[in-house]
Amino acid sequence: MLIRELERLENLLQPWREFEYINREVFRTLSPVQVEFPLVNLWKNEDKVVVTTEMPGVESEGVEINVTGKTITLRFERKPEELKDGEAYTRRERRYGEFKRTIELPFNVQSDKVEAKFSKGILYIELPRAEAEKPRKITVKSE
């Protein structure tokens, strides 16, 4: 090998990293089902919900987003590098293929006002809450 990794050695100096490494390896070996990909974070406030997901190496045109009521579905493909004759992988950790994820949102959203942007391999989707569901403040009138 022309290139060798020092991660393990480094890990010994940082115990929590070693723990994470073991955790990841155990999960990878024992789990019959692959870990969810892409990984998603979900944020909200009273007016909107924000979904962010990491999809490095994906082109924005290849990402399909579908929103219906309370669910959002992401679909995309990540293609592997094309190898020419005489080229070979010596290490392969990145995942390839077609991926689909459906996420349940905390409330109904206005699907026609969803905005998505893709930058530096991170997809950011902003979904405004359905008007009818927004919390309303009721003023109490005195008689």
């Binding site: 022309l2 290139i3 991660e7 990293r17 490494y21 590098e81 190898l83 020419k84 005489g86 080229e87 070979a88 992988y89 010596t90 290490r91 392969r92 950790e93 990145r94 995942r95």
Partner: peptide, 12 residues
């Protein structure tokens, strides 16, 4: 600090 997933390809 996260260790990024890495692919290594050897070409000619």
């Amino acid at each position: 600090i996260y260790a990024p997933a890495v692919d290594i390809i050897e070409t000619t």
